[in-house]
């Protein structure tokens, strides 16, 4: 038996899939934004907080970075309802991805704090800057510059990571691929098209991030 690839049957689902791609980007963005807030709190707690807070943050980071995101989401997905908390699949996935991202972003932002050069802070003080001024004029620009590339990279990783939302029935790109597959039975075609769409999606995201970085933060990144 020979199988001939027939992309024709799948092409009419392209708009449907592309819309799923936008949902993937949005899911990644929401989880990233939440993760950034968690990460900022974590990094600050880890750097400036009292001992107990430092320990707590460390435990959070170590646990979430040493277990799979998929299983973390499974855990939330099945355990929260038993505790009476009912979340939609999208909410459960978003919560899991946010908690997971928060751990990685704590690490990244903490590293960024650590690279603020002492000399520049001293110079800011000699120039008579207040604490808020030196945070705004010295620390933040520096942190943004050093962190922009690793953060962008993390976002791309998260866009790829959103595909596991399909496992829980979320209709993002991979989830919609499951639906199209169920209707057409053209599995290889569907998933190669979807693979290509992820490539395009992340290329667009990389490009956009590098343009934004260049224009807004004067950060130069390799475009690929």
């Amino acid at each position: 038996m020979t199988y001939t690839l027939q992309f024709g049957q799948v092409t009419r689902y392209l708009p449907f899939l592309a819309e799923g791609g936008l949902i993937s980007l949005a899911l990644a963005f929401l989880a990233f934004a939440g993760g950034m807030v968690l990460g900022l709190l974590g990094a600050m707690g880890r750097t400036f907080g009292p001992r107990a807070v430092q320990r707590g943050v460390q435990a959070y980071v170590v646990f979430f970075t040493n277990t799979p995101q998929l299983v973390q989401i499974y855990f939330l997905f099945f355990v929260l309802p038993e505790a009476g908390i009912l979340l939609s699949p999208f909410q459960a996935v978003l919560l899991g991805m946010t908690l997971n991202a928060g751990a990685y972003l704590t690490e990244i932002q903490r590293a960024g704090f650590a690279t603020v050069p002492r000399g520049e802070l001293d110079a800011a003080e000699t120039l008579g800057m207040s604490l808020t001024q030196s945070v705004r004029l010295v620390i933040l620009p520096h942190v943004v510059k050093t962190l922009y590339a690793p953060l962008s990279n993390q976002y791309i990783i998260m866009v790829l990571g959103t595909s596991m939302a399909a496992v829980f029935g979320v209709e993002e790109l991979t989830g919609r691929a499951f639906s199209v597959n169920a209707e057409t039975f053209r599995s290889v075609e569907v998933f190669s098209i979807v693979g290509a769409m992820y490539i395009v999606l992340t290329l667009i995201a990389t490009l956009a991030l590098s343009v934004v970085g260049r224009l807004m933060f004067r950060v130069r990144m390799p475009t690929l």
Partner: peptide, 11 residues
């Protein structure tokens, strides 16, 4: 490096 592992796996 731009294809999710899940998609590669299914493919």
């Amino acid at each position: 490096r731009r294809i999710p592992f899940l998609v590669t796996l299914l493919l």
